[in-house]
Design a binder for these strands. Structure first.
Length: 136
DNA sequence: CGTTTGACTACGC
DNA sequence: CGCGTAGCCAAAC
């Protein structure tokens, strides 16, 4: 992982970004990490690819009262990152299906259909974010 | 204090 | 494809 100089603002930024994901769309830990510039904690080094783990950490530490669409964040493989069969995985899948997101037999979504393209330009500028890396 | 534990990802079999 | 693993580290025990 990397060493966030500003864990507090970094987590807040992650939550803010997740809050922008519209219903019926999904993002990934890596895609969210790709938007966060080095001055918010993303090391521009070899550790960069570990950043997604910190996005996961931020999600795990989401405050109770904070209402954000946490279920719209999945992993780069297009599947839910909670253990299959766990209550959390079941709830996440149910919430997504409720929004029309379909899963194939292997439990994966089709990014071509549901991938989020990132926040609008105004949000990017207001939060000083980088353009998101497209989902594969 | 030492250990365990992660809501990850890219890559190689 | 699926599975294992390196990368690399702050928190929570």
């Amino acid at each position: 992982m990397f060493n966030p100089p500003n864990p507090k603002s970094f987590f807040q930024l992650v939550w803010d970004i997740v809050g922008e994901i519209p219903a019926g769309c999904v993002s990934s830990y890596g895609q969210i990490a790709s938007m966060i510039p080095p001055d918010e904690g993303m090391a521009p080094t070899r550790m960069r690819h570990l950043a997604p783990r910190w996005v996961g950490t931020a999600m795990r530490k989401t405050p109770r009262g904070l209402s954000i669409p946490w279920h719209r964040v999945i992993n780069s493989q297009g599947s839910i990152s909670f253990p299959k069969g766990s209550p959390q995985a079941d709830e996440q899948r149910q919430r997504l299906e409720m929004e029309g997101v379909r899963f194939d037999a292997r439990g994966k979504v089709d990014f071509a259909l549901v991938a989020w393209q990132g926040p609008d330009e105004a949000f990017l500028q207001r939060k000083r974010l980088l353009p998101p890396r497209p989902l594969k």
